[in-house]
Design a protein around this nucleic acid. Structure first.
Length: 173
DNA sequence: ACGATGATGAAC
DNA sequence: TTCATCATCGTA
């Protein structure tokens, strides 16, 4: 039986959480009762105030505020004027870190996921549990760490040396 | 290869 | 108040 990933799961270093999410399920339940469920295959970690790829490198702003808050809460923002990006906050309050959800088995691309699953700003700051209609469930089957490939993150060429950090995790086919 | 399209943060 | 930038995607 699938088990909801609780706050404790996200209250860990973001690199651990990111790899732990590979193979887990992203679940979306809409008001009409429709439920989508798909296994996560691609995520990225954004780690702390010194990570130049992270929005939090600019410090605490209205937008990044949720990244400095408690774990297990969604950080959702608009990019390029048209795509919502879905993240989950990790670690201890005061330390800004989050995992960007980039791909699942059925949906490839962070903007497509939010579009298909009706995710927008209204989920920003909401918890990953049934109350928000968006949550994560544990792996259906164990994943060997050798099945998880680490690569540099996408679309962050502005991040200097941090652009090379292997913080993107992909499930090998 | 390129334009769409609007919030954000920093400069002025 | 203006301006450059942007954790992307679809069309060409």
């Amino acid at each position: 039986m699938p088990v909801l990933l609780t706050k404790a799961f996200f209250e860990r270093p973001v690199l651990e959480v990111a790899q732990g999410l590979i193979g887990a399920a992203l679940v979306r339940r809409l008001a009409d009762g429709t439920t989508f469920r798909s296994m996560l295959t691609e995520v990225e970690a954004y780690d702390g105030p010194d990570d130049l790829a992270s929005h939090a490198a600019k410090g605490r702003t209205p937008r990044t505020e949720v990244m400095f808050g408690p774990a297990g809460v969604f950080y959702v923002y608009l990019i390029y004027g048209m795509h919502w990006m879905l993240n989950v906050v990790t670690g201890e309050p005061g330390y800004p870190a989050a995992v960007l959800i980039r791909g699942t088995q059925d949906i490839s691309g962070p903007g497509r996921i939010t579009s298909r699953l009706a995710i927008d700003k209204s989920l920003n700051g909401k918890p990953a549990n049934r109350s928000s209609g968006l949550w994560f469930e544990d792996r259906a089957a164990p994943i060997d760490s050798k099945q998880i490939e680490a690569t540099p993150r996408i679309g962050i060429d502005y991040a200097g040396d941090w652009a090379q950090a292997p913080y993107r995790f992909v499930l090998r086919e």
